[in-house]
């Protein structure tokens, strides 16, 4: 009975939640890898942007992961976390890796307003979120 109540409560809270408060193990590991490939200044800006993220929305089974730094309920973009001057959508990095489920993935990290906004994958990641990726290959596009 208690388990049923917990499940009911969880389903109600999931209806009211906008998303997760931060990145999963998988996403954080990929962003660490992006950071490792950037120069010191950009790596620091990316780190600060990642630390400011307080809402992560996963769509389409985790094929699309959008990250927001909300302030007073609205998305905020700090100039201090900008990696490039352009405001348009730009590819930050492309990557491939093997998930813990032995599925091979390819994906892209995207910038909007010069700042990290999303990760996109060619396969759903919802069942691989808690595992670190292996055999990561990554190239920076900016």
């Amino acid at each position: 009975m208690r388990g049923v109540n917990m499940k009911f409560l969880q389903s109600i809270t999931s209806l009211l939640r906008k998303g997760a408060p931060g990145f999963s193990v998988l996403e954080a590991a990929l962003l660490d890898e992006v950071e490792r490939h950037l120069d010191v200044d950009r790596a620091d800006r990316l780190r600060r942007r990642i630390e400011s993220i307080n809402l992560v929305q996963r769509l389409d089974g985790g094929r699309e992961v959008n990250a927001y730094a909300l302030k007073n309920g609205k998305p905020a973009f700090e100039e201090a976390t900008r990696l490039i001057a352009e405001d348009d959508e730009r590819k930050l990095a492309t990557f491939s890796f093997i998930g813990a489920n032995q599925i091979s993935y390819e994906g892209t990290a995207w910038l909007v307003n010069g700042q990290l906004f999303s990760l996109e994958f060619n396969n759903p990641t919802e069942h691989a979120l808690d595992d670190r990726p292996t055999d990561v290959k990554l190239s920076i596009c900016i």
Binding site: R17, K18, G19, N66, P75, D87, S118
Partner: peptide, 13 residues
């Protein structure tokens, strides 16, 4: 993406 960056999805309810 630029529109989505300014407009996060509301909750499911």
């Amino acid at each position: 993406r630029s529109w989505k960056a300014a407009n996060p999805m509301p909750n499911r309810a």
